[in-house]
Amino acid sequence: MKRRDFITKTTAATALLTLNNLEILAAPKIKTKHITIIHSNDVHSNIDPFNSDHPRYPNLGGTARRAAYVNSVRNENPNMLLLDAGDMFQGTPYFNYFGGELEFKLMSMMKYDAATIGNHEFDNGIDGILAQLPNAKFDLVSANYDFSNTVLDTFVKPYKIFNVDNVKIGVFGLGVKLEGLVDKKMYKETVYLDPIEIAQDMTRILKENEKCDLIICLSHLGYYYKATPEVVSDLNLASKTKDIDLIIGGHSHTFLQKPTITKNIEGKNVLVNQVGRDGVNMGRIDFYFDTLKNKTHKAERIIII
């Protein structure tokens, strides 16, 4: 369906209804919705901007600036979700001194909706995550970490469903394998489950049972491992699952200039995005919906600015 057709049909429908003097039937005319997703990953406790003499990111980043950006988008489109793909903690002395308190407080002020748990969230142990939860007014979602034998049991949900302007959006989280990456003393009895299998369960629940209009995965698996392509990554996840619309990634600190458009197991498009590290960038994805069954997600409909 081309945009021209779209406009023509809308006009025709309106004209017809007006002729029949049936304003009450204006409701079934084509509805359009616009949802904005703003996302970050691997901010690593970078509260302050980098100094002007920083070798890689001079003068970049800073929470007060990120907040200004988020506010400007929110003013433009209040129908938005603000999401983070993990490793909010560790990287500056702010974390070493305050244990993530300030990171969570500022994210709450920015009105983050959800974040997933990265490996560095465990740097003060699983008790360190629990201790900071009162500072987080957003949800931590993680579907493949089984916390049932830990202090985080019931505090972390596998997924969360948001209703934004009557668009049902399912957001689930996936974390990286902890063994060999995080000291067992830190993650204790957390059980790492296979991300692909869990993602298949999640999409079944979110699509078939919950009838979500949009499914987003917050992944801390890493974008893709060239030297070890068999290691589970966002690109592998995309190709082995269905019904995921967007994977917001982290962990590999990958700077993508634009989202990667890849195919899922059914040959449908999946977007994979990641915006580097340290809060020097924020990503934005705008989804436009309508009620016309004009096949969705065709590559030509994805416009990258």
Binding site: R65, N273, V280, D286, I302
Partner: peptide
């Protein structure tokens, strides 16, 4: 609802 269009952008902070 069906997705009819997607736009993406990257913003430097």
């Amino acid at each position: 609802l069906y997705v009819s269009k997607v736009e993406a952008s990257l913003t430097e902070i």
